[in-house]
């Protein structure tokens, strides 16, 4: 049984159930790298080009972690995941970066996914990747159908408030008696990777706060809000983050918004400012937390604590 390695990084948080079921239906064994840890990050920092952002470095670390244990490494070249939209340009070059930065790699599956002009290239990519494992077109087609259904289930759980980790286990969010909600926005690979985010979701939940992210809002709502932007936002993630912040404030009554950004992210640098202005106009507290390779948790904790104090102080007129 051929082994396909999938790094637990970047768009893993968005598409893993799809990829996993697709490969498994084609008779491959999927090997997932472990949770991000210090060694993975260190390995990534050591082999990745210096000026890449933190999540790219994390991805490299996961690739290093997998390379000797698998026959294939899955590093798709993602250009666009939505019609007329793009994702961060670093994703286009990701397979090249990985291939040129890491030695001793197994065969890299680097199919190109570009949905900017529609679904045609997706079909091509599915057939190309499927062809590595089987000659039967119907088997590839069926595998993809099943994989898509799996992804839909996963996304449904997230809409109900589950984090990727919970949804991948087939669970909803843990039952809890929350006092109020906070919106947490940012690239999924930043907010859901507990090592990178310093467990921000767990920390907030631990304080009795419900955490709502952009992935917990349905696409139709987000698209509807995005239509009202003065100019179309052509970055898929930027659009989602911006639209979700409005939705969470107007429809879900969040008391504040936290935007987790990775140091060196070009997209966050621009979108962050746009989002901040929109949120401030609504008079809702906003806090941007920048994360990087450092392990100093105190900085994140102090800002979180102060932000929560502020929200509760506004509410109760008491700072205790």
């Amino acid at each position: 049984m051929p082994k396909v390695g999938i790094p637990r990084a970047l768009l893993y948080y968005n598409y893993f159930p799809l990829w996993k079921v697709f490969f498994e239906e084609l008779g491959a064994e999927v090997v997932l790298s472990g949770l991000t840890n210090k060694k993975i990050l260190d390995d990534g920092v050591n082999c990745c080009v210096d000026d890449a952002c933190l999540p790219m470095k994390v991805f490299h670390g996961h690739a290093v972690h997998l390379k000797d244990r698998v026959d294939y490494l899955f590093v798709p070249r993602l250009i666009s995941v939505e019609k007329n939209e793009y994702i961060c340009p670093k994703f286009c070059g990701l397979p090249d970066m990985v291939i040129n930065s890491i030695e001793g790699l197994p065969k890299v599956i680097d199919c190109t996914i570009n949905l900017r002009d529609g679904n045609k290239s997706l079909r091509k990519a599915v057939l190309e990747v499927g062809g590595l494992f089987t000659g039967s077109l119907s088997r590839i087609y069926n595998a993809y159908q099943k994989a898509s259904a799996e992804l839909a289930d996963y996304e449904r759980l997230m809409l109900n408030g589950a984090t990727p980790l919970e949804a991948l286990n087939g669970n909803g969010p843990p039952p809890a008696d929350y006092q109020y909600s906070i919106g947490l926005i940012g690239h999924p690979y930043n907010i859901y990777d507990n090592y990178v985010s310093m467990s921000i979701i767990e920390k907030l939940r631990g304080r009795g706060i419900n955490v709502l992210t952009q992935d917990m809002v349905c696409k139709e709502e987000l698209d509807r809000i995005a239509e009202g932007f003065t100019k179309p936002m052509f970055w898929s993630f930027g659009k989602k983050i911006m639209a979700a912040s409005s939705y969470l404030i107007d429809q879900r009554n969040v008391r504040g918004i936290i935007y987790l950004v990775a140091f060196g992210c070009g997209l966050d640098a621009l979108v962050g400012d746009l989002v901040e202005r929109r949120i401030r106009k609504k008079g809702v507290p906003f806090c941007m937390i920048t994360i990087d390779e450092h392990t100093g948790e105190a900085g994140v904790d102090t800002r979180l604590e102060a932000f929560i104090d502020m929200l509760e102080w506004r509410d109760t007129q008491k700072c205790l």
């Binding site: 140091f263 507290p285 102060a306 104090d309 502020m310 506004r314 007129q317």
Partner: peptide
């Protein structure tokens, strides 16, 4: 008399 916004230096 209530904190309405704050910022701390980043890196």
């Amino acid at each position: 008399g209530i904190v309405s916004d704050f910022a701390m230096n980043t890196v």
